[in-house]
Amino acid sequence: MEWDWNVVASVTPSLLNGLIVTVQATIVGAVLAYVLGLVIAILKMSGNKAVAFITYWSSEFIRRTPLLVQLYFLFYVLPDFGIFLSPFVAGVIGLGLHFSTYTSEVYRAGIENVPKGQWEAARSLNYSAYHTWRFVILPQAIPPMFPPLANYLITMFKETPLLSAITVVELFNAANIYSNSHYKYLEPMTLVGLFFLLVSIPAAMIALKIENKYKPLN
Protein backbone atom coordinates (compact mmCIF):
# COMPACT_ATOMS: atom_id res chain seq x y z
CA MET A 1 0.00 0.00 0.00
CA GLU A 2 1.42 3.33 -1.11
CA TRP A 3 0.76 6.73 0.44
CA ASP A 4 -0.90 8.86 -2.24
CA TRP A 5 -0.52 12.63 -1.91
CA ASN A 6 -3.18 13.16 -4.57
CA VAL A 7 -5.73 11.58 -2.27
CA VAL A 8 -4.56 13.90 0.52
CA ALA A 9 -5.04 16.92 -1.69
CA SER A 10 -8.51 15.91 -2.84
CA VAL A 11 -9.91 14.86 0.55
CA THR A 12 -8.50 17.68 2.70
CA PRO A 13 -11.10 20.36 1.78
CA SER A 14 -14.03 18.19 2.83
CA LEU A 15 -12.14 17.12 5.95
CA LEU A 16 -11.67 20.74 6.93
CA ASN A 17 -15.41 21.31 6.51
CA GLY A 18 -15.95 18.28 8.67
CA LEU A 19 -13.57 19.59 11.29
CA ILE A 20 -15.57 22.81 11.47
CA VAL A 21 -18.75 20.82 12.11
CA THR A 22 -16.93 18.76 14.73
CA VAL A 23 -15.74 21.86 16.57
CA GLN A 24 -19.18 23.45 16.34
CA ALA A 25 -20.88 20.33 17.69
CA THR A 26 -18.34 20.13 20.51
CA ILE A 27 -18.79 23.75 21.54
CA VAL A 28 -22.59 23.81 21.38
CA GLY A 29 -22.75 20.39 23.04
CA ALA A 30 -20.39 21.52 25.79
CA VAL A 31 -22.33 24.69 26.54
CA LEU A 32 -25.46 22.56 26.77
CA ALA A 33 -23.67 20.05 29.00
CA TYR A 34 -22.39 22.76 31.32
CA VAL A 35 -25.73 24.54 31.70
CA LEU A 36 -27.89 21.42 31.88
CA GLY A 37 -25.41 19.84 34.30
CA LEU A 38 -25.82 22.77 36.67
CA VAL A 39 -29.60 22.42 36.51
CA ILE A 40 -29.35 18.69 37.21
CA ALA A 41 -26.94 19.28 40.12
CA ILE A 42 -29.29 21.82 41.71
CA LEU A 43 -32.33 19.58 41.25
CA LYS A 44 -30.44 16.60 42.68
CA MET A 45 -29.61 18.60 45.80
CA SER A 46 -33.18 19.88 46.02
CA GLY A 47 -34.91 19.73 49.38
CA ASN A 48 -37.91 18.28 47.56
CA LYS A 49 -37.34 14.53 47.85
CA ALA A 50 -39.45 13.61 44.80
CA VAL A 51 -37.64 16.09 42.55
CA ALA A 52 -34.23 14.94 43.79
CA PHE A 53 -35.20 11.28 43.35
CA ILE A 54 -36.54 11.65 39.80
CA THR A 55 -33.57 13.77 38.73
CA TYR A 56 -31.09 11.33 40.23
CA TRP A 57 -32.52 8.30 38.45
CA SER A 58 -33.09 10.04 35.10
CA SER A 59 -29.52 11.22 35.15
CA GLU A 60 -28.24 7.77 36.15
CA PHE A 61 -30.25 6.28 33.27
CA ILE A 62 -28.70 8.66 30.74
CA ARG A 63 -25.22 8.19 32.16
CA ARG A 64 -25.38 4.40 32.21
CA THR A 65 -26.65 3.94 28.64
CA PRO A 66 -24.58 4.40 25.47
CA LEU A 67 -24.53 7.78 23.76
CA LEU A 68 -24.96 6.00 20.42
CA VAL A 69 -28.32 4.58 21.51
CA GLN A 70 -29.43 7.98 22.72
CA LEU A 71 -28.48 9.56 19.41
CA TYR A 72 -30.50 6.94 17.53
CA PHE A 73 -33.41 7.58 19.82
CA LEU A 74 -33.30 11.34 19.26
CA PHE A 75 -32.92 11.10 15.50
CA TYR A 76 -34.79 7.96 14.44
CA VAL A 77 -37.36 7.35 17.22
CA LEU A 78 -38.56 10.84 18.12
CA PRO A 79 -40.02 11.39 14.61
CA ASP A 80 -42.48 8.60 15.44
CA PHE A 81 -43.77 10.96 18.13
CA GLY A 82 -43.92 13.85 15.71
CA ILE A 83 -40.65 15.45 16.78
CA PHE A 84 -38.30 16.04 13.90
CA LEU A 85 -34.75 17.25 14.59
CA SER A 86 -32.02 18.01 12.10
CA PRO A 87 -28.99 15.68 12.38
CA PHE A 88 -26.86 18.45 13.88
CA VAL A 89 -29.49 19.51 16.44
CA ALA A 90 -30.19 15.92 17.46
CA GLY A 91 -26.43 15.38 17.69
CA VAL A 92 -25.65 18.30 19.98
CA ILE A 93 -28.70 17.60 22.15
CA GLY A 94 -27.55 14.00 22.55
CA LEU A 95 -23.97 15.02 23.25
CA GLY A 96 -24.99 17.81 25.65
CA LEU A 97 -27.57 15.72 27.48
CA HIS A 98 -25.25 12.74 27.86
CA PHE A 99 -22.35 14.77 29.21
CA SER A 100 -24.55 16.96 31.40
CA THR A 101 -24.93 13.91 33.63
CA TYR A 102 -21.15 13.92 34.04
CA THR A 103 -20.76 17.66 34.53
CA SER A 104 -23.54 17.61 37.14
CA GLU A 105 -21.34 15.27 39.17
CA VAL A 106 -18.47 17.75 38.85
CA TYR A 107 -20.65 20.53 40.23
CA ARG A 108 -22.00 18.36 43.02
CA ALA A 109 -18.54 17.14 44.05
CA GLY A 110 -17.17 20.69 43.91
CA ILE A 111 -19.81 21.90 46.33
CA GLU A 112 -19.68 18.85 48.58
CA ASN A 113 -15.90 19.09 48.83
CA VAL A 114 -16.13 22.43 50.60
CA PRO A 115 -15.58 21.38 54.22
CA LYS A 116 -18.53 21.39 56.60
CA GLY A 117 -16.55 23.77 58.82
CA GLN A 118 -16.87 26.48 56.17
CA TRP A 119 -20.67 26.33 56.37
CA GLU A 120 -20.48 26.41 60.14
CA ALA A 121 -18.08 29.36 60.17
CA ALA A 122 -20.42 31.29 57.86
CA ARG A 123 -23.37 30.46 60.09
CA SER A 124 -21.50 31.42 63.26
CA LEU A 125 -20.70 34.78 61.65
CA ASN A 126 -24.40 35.13 60.87
CA TYR A 127 -24.09 35.11 57.06
CA SER A 128 -27.38 34.88 55.18
CA ALA A 129 -27.89 31.93 52.85
CA TYR A 130 -27.09 34.18 49.89
CA HIS A 131 -23.90 35.53 51.45
CA THR A 132 -22.81 32.02 52.41
CA TRP A 133 -23.12 30.77 48.82
CA ARG A 134 -21.82 33.90 47.15
CA PHE A 135 -18.84 34.72 49.37
CA VAL A 136 -17.88 31.46 51.08
CA ILE A 137 -18.98 28.31 49.27
CA LEU A 138 -18.89 29.11 45.53
CA PRO A 139 -15.50 30.88 45.55
CA GLN A 140 -14.07 27.67 46.98
CA ALA A 141 -16.19 25.21 45.01
CA ILE A 142 -15.83 26.65 41.50
CA PRO A 143 -12.04 26.73 40.86
CA PRO A 144 -11.57 22.98 41.39
CA MET A 145 -14.39 22.38 38.88
CA PHE A 146 -12.47 23.89 35.96
CA PRO A 147 -10.00 21.04 35.33
CA PRO A 148 -12.61 18.24 35.12
CA LEU A 149 -14.93 20.45 33.06
CA ALA A 150 -12.07 21.13 30.63
CA ASN A 151 -11.33 17.43 30.41
CA TYR A 152 -14.95 16.63 29.58
CA LEU A 153 -14.72 19.15 26.74
CA ILE A 154 -11.84 17.15 25.27
CA THR A 155 -13.72 13.88 25.79
CA MET A 156 -16.77 15.29 24.03
CA PHE A 157 -14.59 16.38 21.15
CA LYS A 158 -13.34 12.83 20.74
CA GLU A 159 -16.86 11.38 20.94
CA THR A 160 -18.19 13.48 18.05
CA PRO A 161 -17.57 10.74 15.43
CA LEU A 162 -20.60 9.02 16.95
CA LEU A 163 -22.67 11.77 15.34
CA SER A 164 -21.86 10.17 11.98
CA ALA A 165 -24.36 7.48 12.91
CA ILE A 166 -27.15 10.02 12.56
CA THR A 167 -25.75 11.41 9.29
CA VAL A 168 -23.95 14.46 10.65
CA VAL A 169 -21.05 15.13 8.30
CA GLU A 170 -18.41 15.85 10.89
CA LEU A 171 -14.71 15.15 10.47
CA PHE A 172 -14.92 11.36 10.62
CA ASN A 173 -17.99 11.09 8.46
CA ALA A 174 -16.48 13.41 5.85
CA ALA A 175 -13.53 11.03 5.57
CA ASN A 176 -15.80 8.02 5.61
CA ILE A 177 -17.93 9.31 2.75
CA TYR A 178 -14.83 9.97 0.68
CA SER A 179 -13.32 6.60 1.51
CA ASN A 180 -16.44 4.66 0.63
CA SER A 181 -16.75 6.27 -2.76
CA HIS A 182 -13.04 6.16 -3.68
CA TYR A 183 -12.02 2.95 -1.91
CA LYS A 184 -9.20 4.89 -0.29
CA TYR A 185 -8.95 4.49 3.47
CA LEU A 186 -5.31 4.98 4.44
CA GLU A 187 -4.96 8.69 3.75
CA PRO A 188 -8.39 9.94 4.83
CA MET A 189 -8.38 7.99 8.12
CA THR A 190 -4.78 8.95 8.88
CA LEU A 191 -5.70 12.57 8.33
CA VAL A 192 -8.75 12.23 10.61
CA GLY A 193 -6.49 10.98 13.39
CA LEU A 194 -4.02 13.75 12.68
CA PHE A 195 -6.70 16.46 12.78
CA PHE A 196 -8.04 15.14 16.07
CA LEU A 197 -4.53 15.18 17.51
CA LEU A 198 -3.89 18.69 16.22
CA VAL A 199 -6.83 19.95 18.23
CA SER A 200 -6.75 17.70 21.26
CA ILE A 201 -3.04 17.95 22.12
CA PRO A 202 -3.05 21.75 22.48
CA ALA A 203 -6.41 21.45 24.26
CA ALA A 204 -4.94 18.94 26.70
CA MET A 205 -2.02 21.26 27.33
CA ILE A 206 -4.40 24.11 28.10
CA ALA A 207 -6.37 21.79 30.39
CA LEU A 208 -3.17 20.91 32.23
CA LYS A 209 -2.41 24.60 32.67
CA ILE A 210 -5.89 25.11 34.09
CA GLU A 211 -5.36 22.17 36.41
CA ASN A 212 -2.14 23.64 37.78
CA LYS A 213 -3.65 27.07 38.12
CA TYR A 214 -6.59 25.85 40.18
CA LYS A 215 -4.78 23.48 42.47
CA PRO A 216 -6.41 23.56 45.90
CA LEU A 217 -4.73 25.94 48.34
CA ASN A 218 -4.25 23.73 51.34
Binding site: G117, A121, R123, N126, S128
Partner: peptide, 19 residues
Protein backbone atom coordinates in the same frame (compact mmCIF):
# COMPACT_ATOMS: atom_id res chain seq x y z
CA UNK B 1 -30.32 35.34 62.90
CA UNK B 2 -31.25 37.92 65.52
CA UNK B 3 -30.01 35.71 68.32
CA UNK B 4 -26.74 34.89 66.54
CA UNK B 5 -25.76 38.56 66.71
CA UNK B 6 -25.13 38.04 70.42
CA UNK B 7 -22.90 34.99 70.01
CA UNK B 8 -19.56 34.23 68.36
CA UNK B 9 -17.60 31.00 68.09
CA UNK B 10 -14.04 29.82 67.48
CA UNK B 11 -13.60 26.28 66.18
CA UNK B 12 -11.09 23.53 66.72
CA UNK B 13 -10.23 23.50 63.00
CA UNK B 14 -10.08 27.34 62.71
CA UNK B 15 -12.41 27.34 59.67
CA UNK B 16 -10.88 30.46 58.19
CA UNK B 17 -12.00 31.24 54.65
CA UNK B 18 -9.03 29.92 52.61
CA UNK B 19 -9.65 32.16 49.60
Amino acid sequence: QKMRQIIGMVFQQFNLFPH
